[in-house]
């Protein structure tokens, strides 16, 4: 009833007479007009809502992007933090059979003289780095260390920021890997852990295959200062075979400079190689399938820097000594190899 009255009143307002039918008809017309007006209003509202919705969407999009960026930044930042607790001995233990399978049957890995590593306490192991971003010698050594001393002994490895920011970072961190930095190295040694570092870093790991039997730390002596500060012995670890897991053509230092990767990502190199499955592989960002090259690792006797070179040692002298004994061992290991890849 209330609706009919409203219709009649509106019909009147729209020019309707006293006749009921006319009223009714006019009322109907008025109703149509009302509906039309309503439609128009609704249309306008719809457009305004659309605009508001679009604006809200845009805002939400911006917010989501900002949130995602913030989350990503937070995650990268977290990944680069040296939380030694991320090392998970139980998880590592469960991964050992898989590592053992790959190390034994793909790389025919051989790790010699692990007994040279002190039985307990912090120790700085210094290795030559090979194999591009896949570095088979690192995980073969991790396997050997973990089975020899047990997963209970804390063991950390330093890795480049890019590696720590990769999707594999969680797995690596559970195995004891932390981002490479002097602070992280110091924290690990102060906690009493064994620490494996590669002073040559990305410079050495991406060296051309023709230089596969060269130790190249690029003059980096930070590891000596680290050993002196933490008062721990240096144990050189020499590996061969990693640089035969792909055909490394060039470090691509010029390319890194050209593209500004050295400034933006701390990348001094942008390696160029021929690798499975990519063929021509620039940057090695997604890794590659390493060829089944035989990997041999030899652990040398510990070097007590202060005992051997005095209380205030000349860093250049220590550097020359460490790199020389490592090069001599690498030469011996190279002389044992009859064929590339096969070993």
């Amino acid at each position: 009833m209330a609706d009919e009255q409203t219709v009649s009143e509106r019909a009147k307002q729209n020019g309707g007479g006293a006749n009921g039918a006319l009223h009714g008809r006019l009322g109907s017309l008025g109703d149509v007009g009302r509906v039309g007006g309503g439609l128009a209003r609704a249309g306008g509202e719809f457009v305004r809502s659309g605009r508001r919705f679009g604006g809200a969407l845009a805002q939400a999009g911006q917010q989501a992007t900002a949130d995602a960026a913030s989350r990503a930044a937070r995650e990268v930042s977290e990944r680069l933090t040296a939380d030694l607790d991320d090392r998970d001995p139980d998880h590592l233990r469960e991964q050992l059979p898989l590592l053992w399978l790959i190390a034994s049957f793909w790389f025919r890995g051989e790790v010699r003289d692990l007994g040279n590593i002190p039985e307990e306490g912090p120790v700085l192991m210094v290795g030559n780095h090979s194999g591009g971003n896949m570095t088979p010698d690192t995980f073969i050594f991790t396997l050997a260390f973990s089975t020899y001393f047990g997963v209970e002994r804390a063991f950390h490895q330093l890795a480049h920021n890019l590696v720590m920011a990769s999707p594999f970072a969680r797995l690596l961190r559970s195995g004891g890997t932390v981002a490479a930095s002097p602070e992280n190295a110091r924290t690990a040694l102060e906690s009493g852990a064994a620490l494996l570092v590669y002073p040559g870093g990305d410079w050495e790991v991406h060296r051309p295959t023709r230089d596969r039997n060269k130790v190249d730390f690029a003059g980096r002596k930070g590891f000596i200062r680290l050993a002196l500060d933490a008062d721990v012995p240096i144990v050189p670890v020499v590996a061969i075979g990693g640089q035969e897991t792909a055909l490394f053509i060039s470090r691509g230092a010029w390319l890194a400079q050209l593209l500004g990767a050295d400034r933006l990502l701390r990348l001094k190199v942008l390696p160029i190689s021929l690798a499975v499955p990519w063929g021509l592989n620039i940057g090695d960002f997604f890794g590659h399938i390493p060829l089944p090259a035989k990997i041999t690792v030899e652990v040398l006797e510990p070097i007590d820097v202060r005992e051997q070179f005095g209380d205030d040692p000349d860093l250049n002298e220590v550097y020359d000594y460490v790199t020389r004994v490592m090069q001599e061992t690498l030469d011996t290991l190279a002389a044992e190899r009859r064929f590339p890849v096969i070993g």
């Binding site: 469960e94 991964q95 059979p97 898989l98």
Partner: peptide, 16 residues
């Protein structure tokens, strides 16, 4: 054996 290592553990046991 290595408890909790799943299929890789089983394969490793077999290969060893």
């Amino acid at each position: 054996g290595v408890a909790g290592s799943g299929i890789p553990g089983w394969i490793a046991e077999l290969f060893a």
